[in-house]
Design a protein around this nucleic acid. Structure first.
Length: 543
RNA sequence: GAGGAUGUAGCUCAGUCGGUAGAGCAACGGCCUUUUAAGCCGUGGGUCCAGGGUUCGAGCCCCUGCAUCCUCACCA
């Protein structure tokens, strides 16, 4: 019995027929090298400089290449819209201009095919810049249709599973990853300018450390050795301080075997840096410097563009559908917030928009003491053990078998964090939960540590680094009660031995790159800034 | 882990009271030399997430499971 073909298979059969038609013309349906290509943006700037009026054509010839995203054929004339890595461009195809052989080829082309077009720059009667084709080259016939041309691919599951489709179907997605690339580049450039140098340390570690999280485990066969994927590069980078690398950084993919959420992916990217002879105050400057550099290459230009687009859109909706719809659109897209941010940027401030809230990254960020925030929002003194425990119980926090510092931190997270909207440094943490941090010389219960928050998210974490080997060994030699299995207190004798040779006093800092990108590009989910976020594979193993 | 939402054609989505499964886009055939989500005529396309139950009859009601998203918890 012949199994009935699905619609998908039938559609692909039809596309195979067109592909084979190309082959029967003696052409390779999968193309080959195509030279002297100009980007659509390049054509656009050339086109604008020609000063063409509606309906005029120039004699300057160009070649572009890209995917057919819009396809209109009218008898002996056709308009396609072709998208490349930078943008899109309309091409016009006329049977009279191209000749019968080329026209036969044009008729085999479908949405989603990748083509090369040689032609002359002109404008249509409606004043749209258009490349009028003289020669079309098939570069890759697509067997599957692209998604719906108006809505694109909107099923979130499919978008992540088939990011390759998401990227060409939804231009905004590509913009986000372009911004991500710029942000990473700016962060790297900032640190290099500050005389840091970039290193790479092991991802496969025999002992994991530097953070409190469960690791992924793996195994090396030849050495018959269990290994962990790093949860943090911290202990290796500090060894480099001992070795005399005074300013080092690593852009580090870390792996934590924990839950998945809009703010957590099992693998994520951090920039982690160490600076000898500095302390955590210097690290605050570094955060501000890095974020400023990143802002300058992303949000600074993206927000005004977005604001302008939103204003256009509202004007159009008002004309087409009326005031109430326009207002609804404005509310939904936080238009006033974008306009407010745009005006602030014009005035020289570093203001972005995240989740409908304006965030002001202009240095200096506000700096708040951990204990003061606890007093302000939880209403308890950090030194008043009874009050802290009473507050914890009132909040429904389990107190039993937890060290005091853990209880304090639980209360802090439950009461304070949600108020940390604007970029803020929270400094001076309870020492007992900071085993790798130098103590305040005036108060042994305080660790010289800060976390950077924005939009209630932890963006970064920094210490004045502990460099006393005996205290370090002591801190690592017993678990912090109440932290469960996830604890930083895992002894690494080699690391402590390194400290015994003498590590310079230093400031150290980690900043979550994914979260920074989220904040600067207004993406409320970490999956929108990671190209291939982890997902459970489909049982059937296909789409 | 708890709660909520969603799952229907390749894509985007309707589906009323439980009574033969719908549209647009895409595709196929035809017409069309200035389209702007092109248009007009016609055609094909369905494991209604999976399994069970109630019923004469289930896309719709009930139960179980799966997947995804959101919120909370966890993840300093």
């Amino acid at each position: 019995m012949k199994p009935k073909k699905t619609e998908q298979q039938l559609l692909m059969d039809q596309r195979r027929i067109k592909r084979d038609a190309v082959a029967s013309m003696g052409l390779d349906p999968y193309g080959g090298r195509y030279e002297n290509v100009v980007s659509t943006q390049g054509v656009r700037s050339v086109g604008e400089s020609l000063g063409l009026g509606p309906g005029e054509r120039s004699s300057s010839s160009v070649r572009i290449a890209g995917r057919i995203m819009l396809h209109r054929v009218m008898g002996k004339l056709a308009f396609f819209r072709v998208r490349d890595g930078e943008g899109q461009m309309q091409i016009g195809l006329s049977r009279a201009d191209m000749g019968d052989d080329q026209w036969a080829l044009v008729k085999t082309l479908l949405l989603g095919d990748i083509i090369g077009v040689e032609g002359t720059i002109g404008k249509t009667k409606t004043d749209e810049l258009t490349v009028w084709a003289t020669q079309v080259t098939v570069l890759s016939k697509a067997l599957r249709s692209p998604p719906e041309k108006w809505h694109g691919l909107s099923d979130v599951d499919l978008r992540y599973r088939m990011r390759y489709v998401d990227l060409f179907a939804n231009p905004k997605v590509r913009d986000v990853f372009r911004l991500r690339s710029s942000i990473v580049h700016a962060v790297r450039q900032y640190l290099v300018n500050e005389h840091y140098f970039e290193v790479e340390t092991p991802v496969l570690q025999p002992i994991y450390g530097g953070a409190a999280a469960r690791p992924f485990t793996t195994h090396h066969n030849t050495l018959d050795l269990d290994l962990f994927l790093r949860i943090s590069p911290e202990l290796y980078l500090k060894r480099l301080l001992v070795g005399g690398m005074d300013r080092v950084f690593e852009i580090s993919r870390n792996f934590r075997n924990e839950g998945i959420s809009t703010k957590h992916n099992p693998e994520f990217t951090m920039v982690e840096l160490y600076e000898a002879y500095a302390d955590y105050n210097v690290m605050m400057d570094r955060v501000e410097g890095m974020v400023s550099a990143a802002f300058a290459v992303s949000t600074k230009s993206a927000v005004p563009l977005r604001a302008a687009w939103l204003e256009d859109e509202i004007r159009r909706i008002k004309e087409d559908k009326g005031e109430p719809e326009a207002q609804e659109f404005a509310d939904e897209h936080h238009v006033e917030v974008y306009i407010e941010a745009r005006d602030a940027i014009k005035a020289g401030r570093q203001v972005g928009v995240f989740n409908g809230v304006a965030l002001d990254f202009t240095p200096p960020w506000s700096r708040k003491k951990y204990a003061d925030l606890l007093q302000e929002y939880a209403g308890v003194s950090i030194t008043d053990r009874a009050a802290v425990h009473a507050k914890a119980k009132a909040l429904g926090i389990v107190v039993a078998n937890k060290a005091d510092a853990v209880v304090i931190n639980d209360v802090f997270e439950a009461t304070v964090e949600r108020h940390l909207i604007q970029p803020t440094f929270v400094y001076d943490y309870p020492a007992a939960i900071c085993p790798l941090t130098r103590r305040d010389p005036e108060d042994a219960a305080v660790a010289l540590r800060f976390e950077a928050f924005a939009a209630t998210m932890e963006l970064g974490n920094a210490y004045s680094e502990l460099n006393d080997p005996d205290i370090q060994r002591e801190n690592l030699s017993h678990k912090i009660t109440g932290e469960g299995d996830e604890t930083m207190a895992i002894m690494d004798e080699d690391f402590v031995m390194a400290l015994e040779y003498g590590m310079p006093p230093a400031g150290g800092l980690g900043v979550g790159i994914d979260r920074l990108v989220m904040l600067l590009t207004d993406c409320p989910s970490i999956r929108d800034v990671i190209l291939f976020p982890l997902q459970r594979p489909l049982a059937s193993g296909g789409s």
